[in-house]
Amino acid sequence: MTTETLASLIHFLGILLLISSFWILTSSQIRTSIRAYAAHSFFLALITGVIAIANHIEHLLISAILTFGLKAIVIPHVFFRMIRRLGIRKEVESYVNIPFTLLLAVLLVFVSFYVTRDGSFLKPVAFGECIPLAIATVFFGMLMMTTRKKAISQILGLLLIENGLFLMAVTMTFGMPLLVEMGIFFDLLVAVMIMGVFIFKIRDAFESIDTDEMTGLKG
């Protein structure tokens, strides 16, 4: 593969990644959001895999496979089981309506590209155009965590932030050392499980999983 075709492949995958993160943010149903997250993770794994193969970095290939297995299959599966057991039928509830969310998201993408326009400060080892994408993903995750009412959407936001940071690490330094990467995957899986347990506790105590009911503690 020549450098040019490689660059355009990464470019193409990057666009798909961005589209899927918009999809997570704007879908009105929690099921669709989870599917979009799976797609996002899938493209993330593809980008990682392509970079790993192109640069012959074995440990990065392992993290690409792990990303695919854990974030594109296992975690979405856990989520689907969770919402089945919770019996969520209602749509995504947000403090901000979807058109306005979209507007904010577009704005955040512009901000991400603007803050990274000066390439001399950060010289990533892999494809520099992924850096603003990574930052945008982190921003999207934060937007999701702050504007959504459902506890489950907040977990999704956290996972989105994690995906963004992962992309950041991949493009800047070909990922973290394998030992660290493994630890992060383990942490992530445990975090999703523990938060899952808490969602059921919240449902039982508050009779809904809307976090805007949580106003008991102040001062």
């Binding site: 808490f198 506790k201 919240i202 105590a205 508050f206 949580m214 503690l217």
Partner: peptide, 13 residues
């Protein structure tokens, strides 16, 4: 209790 779950959730997030 309700308040402890709220505290733990905020802590986690």
């Amino acid at each position: 209790k309700k308040s402890s779950i709220e505290a733990a959730w905020k802590y986690l997030i």
